[in-house]
């Protein structure tokens, strides 16, 4: 049986579905007996969700986009020219 400290250590990997079958079974067995870790697991999901919702929406600066578009257009032209 794992303790709370080990359960907390596995918590985000569990949320990410990255634990192997045995660690998952141990983790879930711990949850069956530990109300505190059930609460922390739920809270961790909310923390994760909060961060995920703040996805970086910083738009690419227009002058950089223009330079990149010119670069991509040049690449297409070169490809067509060599075809």
């Amino acid at each position: 049986m794992i303790d709370c400290r080990e359960a907390v250590r596995r918590m985000w990997a569990y949320i990410e579905h990255e634990l192997e079958a045995k660690p998952v079974a141990e983790f879930e067995a711990h949850l069956d007996t530990c109300q505190r870790c059930c609460g922390e697991l739920e809270f961790s999901r909310h923390v994760r969700e909060m961060v995920a919702e703040r996805e970086d929406t910083t738009p690419m600066p227009s002058d950089l986009r223009s330079r990149i578009e010119a670069m991509l257009a040049g690449a297409n032209d070169a490809k067509e020219g060599s075809a």
């Binding site: 996805e55 970086d56 929406t57 910083t58 738009p59 690419m60 600066p61 950089l64 986009r65 990149i68 991509l72 257009a73 690449a75 297409n76 490809k79």
Partner: peptide, 25 residues
Amino acid sequence: RSFADVARDHLDRLYGFCVRLTNNP
């Protein structure tokens, strides 16, 4: 698909990732 078309699908996310990689616009 051409590289240009494929790249355009990911430009904003790539830029956002690079901002976070470098911490410097």
